[in-house]
Amino acid sequence: MDTISWSDFEKIDIRVGTIISVNDFPEAKNPAYQLEIDFGLLGIKKSSAQITTLYSKDDLINQQIIAVVNFPKKQIATFMSECLVMGVYGNNKDVILLNPERKVENGLKIG
C-alpha cells in the first residue's frame, strides 16, 4: 500500500450532503443513477453512482452521503459528474454508501 503525507490528505475535501434527486442513467456503461446532492453552502452538485443493485431511487431520496467535492468534473457518457460519492465495495462488488451515524448539516467537512 502506498502512503501519503498529511499534506496530501489535507488536499482532499470530503463533505456530507443530502441526495435531493435520483434519475436513471441509461447511457452509462454500467448500471448507475444520476444524483443531485445538496452540500449546503457549497451548493448542489451532480454525481453518477453505480449503486443500483442495493438501492432503489426511493431509498436514496433524502439520504445523507459522504463525497469528495474537490475532484475536477468528469464526463461520464452524457453526464458531467461534479463529486465522488463514497462507498464500500461489498460482496459481488456492490457499493454500500458511507453516511454519517446521525443527521448533520449539509456541507460539513469530514476530517
Rank of each mutant, 00 (worst) to 15 (best):
S48F: 04
S48A: 15
S48M: 12
S48R: 07
Q50I: 00
I51N: 02
I51W: 00
T52W: 03
T52A: 07
Y55N: 04
Y55S: 05
K57E: 11
D58G: 07
D58Q: 13
D59A: 09
D59V: 09
D59N: 14
L60C: 08
L60F: 09
I61L: 14
N62Q: 15
N62W: 07
Q63W: 01
Q63T: 12
Q63Y: 04
Q64E: 11
Q64Y: 08
Q64R: 09
I66G: 10
I66C: 09
A67Q: 01
V68H: 06
V68Q: 11
N70A: 02
N70D: 03
N70Y: 02
F71P: 05
F71V: 15
P72A: 03
P72Y: 03
P72T: 06
P72N: 11
K73F: 02
K73N: 15
I76Y: 11
I76F: 14
I76K: 08
T78I: 07
F79V: 01
M80W: 05
S81E: 05
S81F: 05
E82A: 06
C83A: 14
L84W: 11
V85L: 07
V85I: 13
V85H: 06
M86V: 03
M86C: 14
G87P: 07
V88W: 08
V88I: 15
V88N: 12
Y89W: 10
Y89D: 11
G90R: 11
G90D: 13
N91D: 15
